[in-house]
């Protein structure tokens, strides 16, 4: 499957899962809100242009916003993590040439610890901006921090499960540059 088709399918699946599964399950606790859809941005190929990444992230956030009727609420954190992503990848990639040898970030292409750091930082940033925008009107500081911590833990758990359930085949591509 070509990268384009794969990403289109992923885009639709992530939105559908977020809207019709994760948003519909009875809330565990008001501090624990499950979010998974932004994994789409984390899985985008290394070589994609930065502007394309940001446009895609905006489209993803906006698509979710159309369902939740909060236009711009999810789009803003998505654009932010899409902007941060290349900087983080440059910092975290261990050896030279990973970008050309592998297609997209994964535990195999980046190594487990850098990949986990990458996921962790972007999840925290995404949740912080999202809950900050949500709580601008009300909500105390303690509530805000607890919501970030608990929801981040829940999201990381979901991402871990997704990684285990849907193993992405990462071909090692030598001399393909």
């Amino acid at each position: 499957m070509s990268s384009l088709v794969k990403n289109i399918v992923r885009f639709c699946l992530f939105i559908l899962v977020q809207v019709f599964v994760l948003d519909q399950v009875p809330p565990l606790h008001h501090l624990a809100v499950p979010y998974l859809y932004f994994l789409f941005i984390l899985w985008l190929p290394f070589k994609m242009g930065r502007r394309t990444q940001m446009i895609l992230a905006f489209a993803l956030g906006f698509a979710l916003d159309c369902f939740t009727k909060t236009y711009g609420l999810h789009a803003a954190p998505c654009v932010f993590i899409a902007y941060m992503r290349p900087f983080l990848i440059n910092l975290l990639i261990s050896q030279e040439g990973t970008e050309s040898n592998y297609q997209e970030p994964s535990a195999k292409s980046m190594g487990f610890t850098p990949y986990f750091t990458y996921i962790f930082i972007l999840t925290v940033v995404h949740h912080s901006i999202l809950f900050f925008l949500q709580l601008l009107q009300t909500g105390g500081f303690f509530y805000f921090i607890m919501k970030i911590i608990i929801s981040t833990a829940l999201s990381l758990g979901l991402i871990f499960l997704t990684e285990l359930l849907f193993t992405r085949k990462q071909r090692f591509r030598t001399n393909t540059v």
């Binding site: 502007r51 940001m54 905006f58 956030g61 711009g72 609420l73 803003a76 654009v79």
Partner: peptide
Amino acid sequence: FFLFLMGVSLYML
């Protein structure tokens, strides 16, 4: 471009 997209989403919000 990043600032522009952020601006658009915050404006909409």
